[in-house]
């Protein structure tokens, strides 16, 4: 399943340019996130080199930590490390970076790579018991699906304390004596959280979208014997469907009807596609074909967003795929037949 090679061997982990090896037990990690880090974050969210965006695992110093300083644990996805270190400005802590093959805490915990075995291994490899005098590890709460606190205690003597869900709460958590408030323990999944993954959804349908737009262009040339403004009018409903499925569905998720994401996507898609067809009308058969294909696309994209949320479950998603995928495929196929037929009648 995991196609990524191990970071210790053939892979080429992305190095943080501002880590300097110094005398002492661990390299220093800067809390300053540079413009190229921000740029890198944008790049991976558009799907470029996402699985190679990693930091070398191991123990790092942030600030000037001593034997009493807290130990925070995180994953070696560079976007994750950036999100954590920028919140640590002015603090002195140890940061133990686990080798999660460049995957974030939540997803890696689900796979087990952010897990008990790796945590125990890193604690021992860093000789943490010799670096600090206390016996506490602050593990992000979303790592708990992979880490069994009582087993870590038994193997290493360190007590796992689950920190906040969000890196932005680390400072308040530490200031409060390693106590997380109920709000720090909850996943909010507000509109910013929902929208930040929209590029991934759009990139996911880019290739089929190009195929569809190319096919429409060919159909138009066949019908009108020339390339004209009508091609743009034909594109509009499909672009509207991509916008509905990839952007509007995540944004309006709590307010779109049904618990089924495919229905949410189809509803958003129907509204947008209808608007596009009304604004730029064509023949009835072509419009019907276009509507079927475009709404199927929006519905499919809506269904794909299940994987980006914080509240879906496996059994439910499997049920949704089994129930929604056949009608999506049938609608798309029927629509394609109608749209092609319309070019020849």
């Amino acid at each position: 399943m995991d196609k990524v090679s191990c970071g210790c061997g053939g892979g080429s982990p992305v190095q943080l340019t501002h880590i300097e090896m110094q005398a002492g037990p661990a390299p220093v990690l800067s809390t300053v996130v540079m413009w190229r880090d921000v740029l890198g974050g944008w790049r991976v969210r558009w799907g470029m080199g996402r699985m190679r965006y990693r930091v070398a695992p191991g123990l790092y110093r942030v600030g000037e930590p001593d034997k009493q300083s807290p130990v925070l644990v995180t994953a070696n996805y560079k976007l994750t490390v950036d999100a954590v270190r920028r919140e640590l400005a002015g603090l002195s802590v140890w940061l133990l970076v686990l080798d999660t093959k460049g995957v974030n805490v939540w997803c890696a915990a689900g796979k087990g790579t952010f897990g008990t075995a790796e945590l125990v291994r890193r604690v021992e490899a860093a000789n943490l018991a010799g670096v600090v005098e206390h016996r506490n590890l602050i593990v992000p709460q979303l790592g708990a699906t992979g880490v069994a606190a009582h087993e870590v205690k038994r193997s290493t003597g360190f007590t796992v304390r689950y920190g906040p869900v969000r890196a932005g709460d680390i400072r308040a958590y530490l200031a409060g004596g390693m106590k997380a408030t109920p709000a720090m323990r909850r996943i909010a999944f507000g509109w910013k959280d929902r929208l930040i993954l929209a590029p991934v959804e759009v990139v996911g349908v880019l290739k089929p979208a190009i195929v569809i737009l190319a096919a429409l262009t060919v159909l138009d040339v066949l019908r009108y014997r020339s390339l004209s403004w009508r091609v743009a009018a034909d594109f509009a409903p499909f672009l509207a469907a991509m916008f509905a499925g990839g952007v509007l569905t995540p944004l309006l998720l709590p307010w779109l009807p049904s618990r089924v994401f495919a229905i949410k996507g189809a509803v958003a898609g129907a509204v947008c596609v209808a608007a596009a067809l009304i604004a730029l009308p064509g023949g009835a058969i072509a419009a019907a074909g276009t509507a079927l294909v475009a709404i199927a696309i929006a519905s499919y994209m809506g269904m794909m967003f299940t994987g980006s949320t914080t509240f879906t479950n496996f059994a439910g998603a499997r049920l949704e795929v089994r129930r929604a995928l056949p009608p999506i495929v049938v609608a798309a196929a029927l629509g394609a037949v109608l749209r092609v037929a319309a070019a020849f009648v």
Binding site: G110, T145, G204, F261, M303, M304, T306, G307, T309, F311, T312, N313, F314, A315, G316, A317, R318, E320, V321
Partner: peptide
Amino acid sequence: TGVGCAAAI
């Protein structure tokens, strides 16, 4: 448990 992700399924 398992991934609540249609793409993975």
